[in-house]
Amino acid sequence: MADQKILRLGEKAPSEEMAALKETVASCMQCGTCSASCPVTRAMDYTPREIMRLIMTDMEEAVLGSQTMWVCASCYSCAARCPRDIEITDLMLRLRSIAIKKGYQPRADVAFYRHFMSIVRRYGRMLEPELMIRYGLTTNPLKLLGMAPIGLTMLRRGKLAFKPDLIKGRREVREIFDRVEGGGE
């Protein structure tokens, strides 16, 4: 995995967001317990331990352009076992939001999270079929066909809601999105 990049230390000063993260990983001793505990490293370009090191050495572009935080299944195995009590899973989630903010992430993953939250913004609650359809249409419409058998089984089992479960406080929820900078659409 991109060893050469790891050797090119300190190309430029970290951004404000990454400098804050750097502080949270300062006690990392590169023991690799996180990577050994992670169930999905094989789908990552950098392992969690490598991400920690890249943050410590200000390799911001490598970190934010990485697949790692998008592959992270937020299972918290790394955080539960880190001998230095670093909240690695939360850090992965934070990397996602920084990457989005800095324009690194045009991928399908982001489409999923945005669709999810735009549904919550409108109804106050999730509406799963709408999420599946919107996500399918913007990423890979053919995949929607692949979801059909499961959709039908869920339909027969009465597990699909077709109408949004609208909450009364929708306006309150919308205002939360509006007041939080960068949230929502």
Binding site: L93, Y113, M117, V120, M126, I167, F177, V180, G183
Partner: peptide, 16 residues
């Protein structure tokens, strides 16, 4: 009650 935001909310913004 409203949706807790699950992982997508914190993906977009931890404050949200």
């Amino acid at each position: 009650w409203n949706c807790c935001g699950a992982t997508p909310a914190t993906t977009l913004d931890p404050l949200l």
